[in-house]
Computed example of a mutant assay.
Amino acid sequence: MLTGKQKRFLRAEAHHLDPIFQVGKGGVNDNMIKQIGEALEARELMKVSILQNCDEDKQEVAQSIAKGAKAEIVQIIGNIIILYKESRENKQLVLPK
Rank of each mutant, 00 (worst) to 15 (best):
G26P: 08
Q59L: 14
K34Q: 14
A69N: 06
Q6Y: 10
M1W: 05
M1C: 05
A71W: 01
Q75S: 14
N31F: 15
A71V: 11
N79I: 00
Q75R: 14
A71K: 04
D30W: 04
E44R: 06
V74I: 12
A69R: 06
N90A: 12
C54N: 04
V23E: 00
N90W: 10
G78S: 11
L93E: 07
G27E: 06
Q6P: 08
G24A: 09
R43V: 09
N29W: 06
I73H: 01
N53C: 03
A62C: 10
G26C: 08
L95I: 13
K67Q: 15
D57M: 05
S49F: 09
E60G: 03
G68M: 08
I77C: 06
F21P: 01
E72L: 05
R8P: 00
Q59R: 15
Q22T: 14
E89I: 13
N90H: 14
V48W: 09
K25H: 13
E86W: 03
C54P: 01
E38T: 12
N29G: 10
Q22Y: 08
G78T: 10
R8L: 12
L2R: 01
Q52N: 13
E44S: 11
I77P: 00
N90K: 15
M32P: 01
L51Q: 14
G68L: 06
D57C: 01
G26L: 14
R43K: 15
A12V: 12
E72G: 04
V48D: 05
L17T: 05
A14N: 04
I82E: 05
V28H: 00
N53M: 08
V28P: 00
R8S: 12
N79S: 11
H16E: 08
K58R: 11
N90P: 03
Y84N: 01
K7V: 05
M1P: 10
I73K: 03
D30G: 13
K25P: 01
E72R: 04
E60P: 00
G4Q: 11
G26I: 09
K58P: 04
H15T: 02
A69V: 02
D18T: 12
Q22M: 08
F9E: 00
A62R: 05
V28R: 02
E38I: 12
A71M: 04
V28Q: 02
N53L: 05
K70W: 08
A71T: 09
K85R: 15
G24V: 07
E89D: 12
G78A: 09
S49T: 04
K34R: 15
K67A: 15
G26K: 15
K34Y: 15
Q92H: 03
G27I: 05
K97R: 14
P96Q: 11
L95R: 08
R88D: 13
E13L: 14
K58H: 10
Q75C: 10
Q63T: 11
M46F: 09
G24E: 05
E86H: 09
V23L: 00
E89M: 10
P96E: 10
T3N: 03
G4H: 10
F21N: 01
A12G: 04
D55G: 11
C54K: 02
I80S: 03
D18E: 14
I65S: 06
Q52A: 15
K47D: 03
F9S: 00
H16N: 07
I65P: 01
V74S: 07
F9H: 08
A42V: 09
K70F: 12
K70V: 13
D57A: 06
R8W: 07
Q92C: 06
N29R: 11
M32S: 02
E60W: 05
N29M: 08
K7N: 05
P19A: 09
L45E: 06
